[in-house]
Simulated assay, not measured.
Amino acid sequence: MAQLAVFDLDGTLVDTPRAIIETFSAAFGSLGVEVPDAPEIRATIGLPLQRAFGDLLGVAPDDELATRGVRQYQIHYKELILPRAQELLFPGVAEGLAGLQDRGVTLAVATSKFHASADALLSAAGLRDRFALVVGADQVTHPKPHPESGQLVLDTLGIPAEHAVMVGDTTHDLKMANAAGLRSIAVTYGIHSAAELATAEPTWTVDTFDEVVARLDKALTTQDQGSAV
């Protein structure tokens, strides 16, 4: 039976939080409205863009102003983030993914980004060919932390939850994993702190991507069902 590792994108594979804040700020500037403080923007990372803009603007996610914000974000995203994609990879990501794939682990992404943006970022970072599937927030009715994204990955690839592990840097990722029946690895180098991540009860918690790979090797290649370390 194939073994599957499902990854979040921002804050897990790519160190994009600072660039995302810059992109949000540029989008708000284009809208001609006051730019929120950086901590306010950072707190929305991991949410679907439409909801993030709605929260930051104080309007409903389907409000026209939020929709305009998303459009402006996507324009600035291509200018501010994509050209820097390779340099924004966390240490060990390129080598770690290559090693996992070489050892027969199937790789996928489940992200709160729209699929096109996620696909473009992975392509710009030179990683797209590593992944059998990329699921974006616009491909599901209920994005993370709802289990639908994880379930879509499992169903599409035909791999049962007990043969899969989710890797993410926010409670949204971990709650999705729990609800979909996946084990999970929380990484502490992304958006949410170790204390925040602990509230979502990850199976394991690690501090570097090298530790992610080591944990996946034990969990998937040996079907280790051990407790959190």
Rank of each mutant, 00 (worst) to 15 (best):
S193T: 15
E201K: 15
R215F: 00
A180C: 00
A214W: 00
V187S: 09
D207H: 14
A198K: 13
H192Y: 04
D210N: 15
T188Y: 08
A198P: 07
E211T: 11
A214C: 02
E201T: 15
A180Y: 08
R215G: 05
S193N: 05
A200E: 12
E211S: 11
L182F: 01
I191G: 09
R183H: 03
G190F: 06
A186L: 12
A214K: 03
A194K: 14
V187K: 01
E196R: 05
R183Q: 05
A200I: 12
A195P: 00
A200L: 10
V212H: 05
V213M: 11
A200T: 11
I185K: 01
A186I: 09
I185Y: 00
A200W: 11
T205C: 09
A186D: 10
A195E: 15
A180Q: 01
V212Q: 04
A194R: 14
V206T: 04
A186R: 06
I191S: 11
A186C: 13
E196P: 07
L216K: 08
T199Y: 02
T203R: 14
A195Y: 00
L182K: 03
T208E: 09
H192F: 06
A195K: 06
A200V: 13
R183F: 00
A186N: 10
D207R: 12
T205A: 06
E211P: 07
G181F: 05
V187W: 02
A200Y: 12
L182I: 01
A186T: 08
A194H: 11
L197P: 02
D210S: 14
A214F: 04
A198G: 05
S193C: 06
H192A: 10
F209V: 02
F209M: 07
V213G: 06
T188W: 05
W204N: 12
T205V: 09
T208K: 02
S184F: 04
A194N: 02
D210E: 15
R215Q: 15
L197E: 01
G190V: 06
F209R: 07
S184K: 03
V206K: 04
